[in-house]
């Protein structure tokens, strides 16, 4: 029963990681860049929700809507002004810019909201559920998080595989020039990808701050790095890979904390990444692209 308890909390944490990792992996797959500012968009989502719902006292759903809309706009703006001018530049230049955007967002948050942690009120009002005569307690946050993650996975998979914009994403991901020849607007498709990734980051921010209710300008940094790990773990560029990678990462972290050492949990997570990459460099779902000559 104790194992099940840790398993569920790991699944819940993994769901948040999966939602964030989806943003990383989609942007990588389509724009071919690592958006290291992605984690900080989560933090911005957290602050937007906090400002609207806690500071201004408006209903939670307005706060969530505001966070999603705000982060979507932020993602598109970042892409338009920081990354698009660098299209065709070396990947190193883009990477450094992404790190710069990350620090910019953190320091803007520091300037506006200060360094003191904000105590965040959970967006989940659902009470915890107990099973097996109280031996197993599942928090409302866990249930909501896992449920939202499942919905996002289904909707996103359908969107990418069954819709026209989804097919355009596949095309841009594989061959930008050929996609243009089909009539696909490459800039528009990349902007759409950033919009989706950032909207997901906002949702992840709301869930993350509900489960771990302190908010600082650096709240997004560590989950950002970890979900990057999750995306690589699953095979960067692969949507099912990000989902599985995120879930596994949450489970490993939670079970390591429970059974090995809570201080060592992060080290174990990164150790697993190293092992996976040594054994299978393209990640779990990584595509091995064989060039046909």
């Amino acid at each position: 029963m104790e194992f099940l308890q840790f398993f569920i909390s790991g699944l819940s944490l993994g769901s948040i990681y999966a939602i964030i990792a989806l943003g990383y992996t989609m942007v990588y797959g389509i724009a071919k860049m690592l958006n290291f500012a992605h984690g900080d968009v989560i933090m911005v989502g957290g602050y937007l929700l906090f400002t609207i719902s806690t500071t201004m006292g408006l209903p939670v759903w307005i706060g969530i809507t505001g966070a999603v809309v705000g982060c979507t706009a932020l993602g598109v703006v970042i892409e338009r002004f920081a990354y698009r001018p660098l299209r065709g530049a070396t990947s190193l230049a883009v990477l450094i810019t992404a790190i710069g955007v990350s620090y910019l967002l953190q320091n803007l948050a520091l300037l506006i909201f200060g360094a003191a942690p904000k105590s965040f009120t959970s967006i989940v009002t659902m009470p915890a559920m107990t099973f097996a005569n109280g031996a197993l307690t599942v928090t409302g946050e866990s249930i909501v998080t896992i449920a939202i993650c499942i919905v996002i996975m289904i909707v996103l998979t359908l969107f990418v595989n069954k819709t026209k914009p989804g097919r355009a994403m596949h095309a841009v991901s594989e061959d930008r020039g050929a996609a243009q020849l089909m009539g696909v607007n490459v800039n528009g498709t990349i902007a759409l990808t950033f919009a989706i990734g950032s909207a997901l980051a906002a949702i992840a921010g709301a869930l993350l701050c509900s489960a771990y209710p302190t908010l600082t300008p650096y709240t997004g940094a560590m989950p950002g790095i970890k979900t990057f790990v999750a995306a690589v773990f699953g095979g960067i560029g692969s949507i099912p890979g990000a989902m599985v990678g995120g879930l596994l990462l949450g489970l490993i972290e939670s079970l390591s904390k429970a059974y090995i050492s809570s201080e060592m949990a992060d080290a174990i997570v990164f150790l697993v990444l190293i092992v996976v990459l040594v054994v299978k460099p393209t990640g779990i779902f990584g595509k091995k692209i064989s060039e046909k000559v």
Partner: peptide, 10 residues
């Protein structure tokens, strides 16, 4: 295009 450039994974 030259080299066909079909979408290999689709």
């Amino acid at each position: 295009p030259e080299g066909r450039r079909i979408f290999q994974q689709l």
